[in-house]
Design a protein around this nucleic acid. Structure first.
Length: 548
DNA sequence: CACTTTTGCGCC
DNA sequence: AGGGCGCAAAAGTG
């Protein structure tokens, strides 16, 4: 991702559905509807498109059959730069700076509901672009920040492309699953037959006629009347109990969740034709991970994955990174012992072979506990051993936790800064009264757990961004002709996992792209240390066959 | 009544 | 006294 030497073309919206295009060769204005027709000619010199929000500009271009090679997303980049410890915030001040700060994400699933502030609607992209370039150039970490902004922007392109393309989805398979488990589709507002039958069974077993199992207080009271000692009705709590009602109740909960979250209405809303179109929000979470604002891309349950089926003659290539976060920790802490363990397919087994702990299960729970800040239980017990063997890695997350407890900002490998966690409020309750020392200390520790995890989760997100940025380019180069969806293309991304939809005969080449992109990501994010990021890759017809 | 918060579950 | 999310329904609030 060469950061410089690429011509930049700034796009701004003008009143009257027109756009201004400012490039090295001058400036022109045209109707917004004609932009797609001019993209190829403007992009001939390999320009980078500079615009306020990829989610706003790119979907109509994709609809018009245009793929954009590279962009700079000013909104996402500004969010990074304003929070980056290595950036002088003053350099981001100036005309309309406050408006740029207020610029919210376009919600892909909805058109703009209310008239936005006219000044926000017609911000000048060129002005903000020059500010950001200057702020990066003046930073002591210009190189890493350029990489981060390029990867973030490429991710925004990939997100729009995935929503546009959609996951190949068989309505027929999905509805068969629903029918088998729930019965026929009920009228709106009614329970499916299977849920109603289970509800009746529970009413009998708990001797509570009229019980509504969806009401937690009702359910809890009925369970307590039946002699069970519990204070909540979570599945994990129920599983510890012995009573004839437990099995049907757990089944009720599972099916009820399927019905309401991924049932017929979900299909109607998010499946168009034979594609599922969830909406992604790049950097939607504070650590830089993506979130989803429509379609539930973060939790497509195993139960319905059989419905994700490749087109005839095509396949799904599913890949996930094995133990991304511990590997990232090895890289950023430069812990040679942990880096050694990370050099191979099974990091947890390597920790055992290292003599740090006795079993793979202990290695896993101990390492995850270290990343999340567990202090007690099985994982907390492993910490001293891990600390002895991997002092630099464990020291890094410990330092991050201590910094958070002192209300200091921490940063990822590429320079994304954590937000300040309302430290002003630590001394007070939510109602504004002075908090007691215990509550205060609890909030400090809580924020420490956040910053501890932030550095690792955030750097993991950066590695993954570089991975998909490289991947979308190499898949495009892999060839084929015509539109994006006529070639091998990304259809799904979730934290450390991707799905590519590709003609079956290209499966091997796609697999190679995935592996090479992972190697590129590793050397981009960790240029000075060699860490392996092994992938589990499977080539399948249906997503459900790719067991994790 | 509309609105916000809480609960509990899904995913990593 | 273990991190990050979204979602739907129930429960709580004005």
């Amino acid at each position: 991702m060469p950061p410089s030497g690429v011509p930049r073309v700034a796009l701004s919206r003008l009143p009257g559905e027109r756009v201004r295009v400012v490039g090295a060769d001058g400036e022109r204005e045209l109707p917004a509807s004609e932009l797609a027709a001019h993209v190829a000619e403007i992009e001939q010199d390999g320009a980078r498109w500079v615009w306020d929000d990829t989610a706003r500009w790119y979907p109509p271009l994709l609809e018009a059959g245009v793929r954009v090679a590279r962009c700079h997303d000013l909104r996402l980049s500004r969010r990074i730069l304003t929070r980056a410890p290595a950036v002088d915030r003053d350099l981001l001040e100036g005309d309309d700076a406050d408006l740029w700060d207020r610029l919210g994400p376009a919600v892909a699933a909805l058109p703009t509901l209310f008239p936005v502030d006219d000044r926000i609607e017609h911000l000048d992209a060129g002005v903000e672009d020059r500010r950001q370039l200057a702020a990066v150039a003046a930073s002591s970490e210009a190189g890493r920040l350029r990489l981060l902004l390029a990867a973030e922007s490429a991710g925004a392109l990939a997100a729009a492309e995935m929503t546009h393309a959609g996951i190949p989805w068989s309505r027929e398979v999905h509805e068969r699953i629903l029918d088998e488990q729930l019965g026929p589709r009920p009228p709106r507002g009614a329970r499916p037959a299977e849920l109603e039958a289970l509800a009746n069974e529970l009413r009998e077993l708990l001797r509570t006629p009229g019980l509504n199992p969806d009401s937690r207080p009702e359910l809890l009271a009925a369970l307590q009347r039946s002699g069970l000692t519990l204070t909540d009705v979570r599945a994990s709590t129920l599983r510890r109990q012995t009573h004839p009602c437990i099995e049907p109740l757990l089944r009720y909960k599972r099916l009820s969740h399927l019905f309401s979250n991924n049932g017929w209405e979900w299909i109607d809303q998010w499946v168009r034709g034979d594609r599922l179109h969830p909406a992604y929000q790049p950097a939607g979470s504070s650590t830089g991970r993506w979130s989803s604002n429509g379609g539930g891309a973060l939790s497509i349950p195993m139960q319905v994955r059989p419905a994700a089926v490749a087109d005839e003659g095509w396949c799904l290539v599913v890949a996930d990174v094995a133990q991304l976060e511990p590997r990232v920790l090895a890289g950023m802490s430069n812990d040679h012992a942990l880096a050694g363990a990370a050099r191979g397919a099974d990091l947890y087994q390597a920790i055992v072979d290292d003599g740090a702990v006795a079993s793979r299960a202990e290695a896993k729970v101990g390492m995850l506990g270290a990343l999340y800040g567990a202090t007690t239980g099985d994982s907390g017990r492993m910490l001293p051993a891990l600390m002895r063997r991997y002092p630099r890695a464990m020291g890094l997350v410990e330092d991050a936790a201590r910094a958070g407890e002192r209300a200091q900002v921490v940063r990822t490998q590429l320079g994304r800064g954590s937000t300040i966690g309302g430290a002003d409020d630590w001394g007070h309750t939510d109602e504004g009264a002075p908090a007691d020392p215990d509550a205060q200390a609890s909030r400090r520790r809580s924020w420490g757990r956040f910053t501890r995890n932030f550095v690792v989760q955030g750097t993991g997100a950066e590695w993954a961004l570089c991975w998909i940025a490289e991947l979308r380019n190499s898949l495009w180069r892999l060839g084929g002709q015509g539109a994006l969806t006529a070639r091998p293309h990304l259809v799904f991304f979730l934290h450390d996992e991707v799905v590519v939809h590709a003609p079956s005969e290209l499966a091997d080449k796609v697999t190679a792209c995935l592996t090479e992109a992972a190697a590129s990501a590793a050397s981009l994010v960790f240029p000075d240390v060699s860490i392996d990021f092994p992938l589990n890759v499977t080539v399948v017809r249906s997503y459900a066959e790719a067991g994790k």
